[in-house]
Simulated scan of single mutants.
Amino acid sequence: MWNNVRQMNLVSSALHAIFVLALLGAAGVYAIQRPEFRLQQIQIDGDTQHINTPTVRASVVGHLKGNFFTVDLDTARAAFEQMPWVHHASVRRVWPNALAVTLEEYKPFGTWGNDQLVSVDGDLFTANQGELDDDLPAFDGPDGTAKEVVARYHDFETWFAPLDAKPEEVTLSSRFAWTVKLSNGTQIELGRERNQDTLHERSARFVASWPAVTGRWGKEIEYADLRYPNGFAIRAAGMRFINDTDKAKK
């Protein structure tokens, strides 16, 4: 090989290329480790009505490793999405030493259980309920039922609208029985869904009878049990009235 000029030239070119690549690599490592590329600023914008940006920024900084070139954007995004109220975060680099973060808040729809909130999309999240501007309806149910409970709220809102009342509380029990408390103070037991029409039919029967019931017992109906096949039971002013031909509950 040492007597072959062509092969010698090829070897020389390869060694030269390797040397140049090594120099470039070393220069690159040196460059990205320069202090001017150390992350020095996090710009936060977007939907931040309930988000304290200085607090979020300070809390996330400790989770960020690396500089402008080496920081993991997925890790940074996940760190922001762990903060209260943050539903979604997008993160991008801003030359030469900053990150730009756009946040999207959860839109609270109601409270869930003792210490959580549920969004308009039926997602559960944890946040300080003292930061809420309005009174929200209260929901509760077994694990994994938040979306179903929120959807049923809208049904109850429509079905009981003729009573000039809105649902204030919607609860799905561990036995999957529904209870609704209306803004007029009436608590309604609807029971379990036997089919897709069960709740609607029971609600419609009660709403249709509402003028007769309130005409006889007044508008302060404290409790209504709709779980009867052909009627319902109510409690008003300490009295109990049964409108049913078959007392056996479903």
Score class of each variant (00 low, 15 high):
Leu103Ala: 03
Ser119Arg: 08
Ser90Glu: 13
Trp112Glu: 09
Asp72Val: 06
Asp121Val: 02
Ala76Ser: 11
Phe125Leu: 11
Leu99Cys: 05
Arg92Lys: 14
Phe80Met: 09
Asp72His: 11
Ala89Cys: 01
Val120Ile: 14
Thr102Glu: 10
Thr126Val: 12
Met83Arg: 13
Trp95Tyr: 15
Arg93His: 01
Ala127Val: 07
Thr111Ser: 14
Ala100Pro: 05
Pro84Ile: 00
Glu105Leu: 04
Asp115Arg: 13
Gln82Ser: 15
Asn97Gly: 07
Lys107Thr: 15
Arg77Lys: 15
Gly113Met: 11
Asn97Tyr: 07
Thr111Phe: 06
Leu64Tyr: 02
Gly110Lys: 05
Val120Ser: 09
Asp115Cys: 07
Phe80Gly: 09
Gln82Pro: 11
Leu124His: 02
Ala127Leu: 06
Thr111Cys: 05
Glu104Phe: 04
Ser90Leu: 06
Ala100Phe: 10
Gly122Thr: 09
Phe68Gly: 03
Phe80Thr: 05
Phe68Thr: 09
Val86Ser: 05
Phe109Trp: 11
Val91Ser: 02
Leu99Tyr: 03
Asp74Thr: 15
Thr102Leu: 10
Val101Lys: 05
Thr126Pro: 01
Val120Trp: 00
Asp121Ser: 14
Arg93Val: 06
Arg77Tyr: 05
Thr102Gly: 08
Gln116Lys: 12
Ala98Met: 09
Leu124Gln: 02
Asp72Pro: 01
Leu64Gly: 05
Asn67Leu: 00
Asp74Gly: 14
Val120Lys: 07
Thr102Tyr: 01
Ala78Trp: 00
Lys65Glu: 14
Leu73Ser: 08
Asn97Trp: 07
Ala78Asp: 12
Val86Leu: 03
